Simulated assay, not measured.
Amino acid sequence: MHQRLDEIQQLLDTLGKSHPDEVGAFVNFMGKAEAGPALSLKQKELVNVALSVAAQCEWCIALHVKNALNAGASRDELVEAGFLAVLMHGGPALMYLTPLLDAVNEFSTGATPN
C-alpha cells in the first residue's frame, strides 16, 4: 500500500508539470471540500474510506486509510466504514475490503488508533 501512495505522488508530480492548472484546481477543490467544520477530520476520512471502497480505488483506499489512522480511527471503525460501502455497493465493494485490510495492517505500525 505504500507503493500506492508513491504512485499517487508520482502521478500528481507528473501531471502537475504538464497540466498545472488542472492539478492545481483539483488540489484546491479537494482542500475546500475537506475544510468544512461540521465533521471532524477522522469522520471525514472514514467517509472517504467508505467512498474509496465503493469506488473500488486502491490508491484512494491507501491514502484515506492512512489519513484516517493518523486522525485516530481504529481498525474497527475502518472496517465498519468498509462494510457501509458494501451495503451501498454490494459484492464488488466487499472484495475491496482486501486492500482496505492491507492498508490498515501496513499503516497501523506507528499509528495511534482509538
Rank of each mutant, 00 (worst) to 15 (best):
K32M: 08
A81M: 15
S108C: 01
F107M: 08
E45M: 10
V104W: 05
L15K: 04
A33S: 12
P92L: 15
S74V: 03
L78V: 13
A93K: 11
W59S: 09
Q43A: 11
T112R: 14
D76K: 14
V47M: 14
L97I: 06
P20A: 04
K44T: 00
L69I: 15
E106D: 10
A62W: 06
E34Y: 13
T14D: 11
V65T: 07
L78Y: 07
L39Q: 04
N114S: 14
V53Q: 08
L84K: 05
T98Y: 14
Q43M: 13
L87W: 05
M88T: 11
E45F: 02
G36I: 00
M30H: 08
S52W: 09
E77S: 06
V79D: 12
L69H: 04
L39G: 10
A50Q: 09
L51S: 10
A54G: 10
D76R: 03
S74A: 15
F26R: 00
N70Y: 01
V86Y: 08
T98F: 08
V27T: 14
L84T: 10
S52L: 06
V65N: 00
I61A: 03
Q56R: 08
L15H: 05
A25S: 04
M95N: 10
S74Q: 13
Q56S: 04
K66C: 01
Q3I: 00
N105R: 09
L100I: 06
D21Q: 12
H2R: 13
D6F: 00
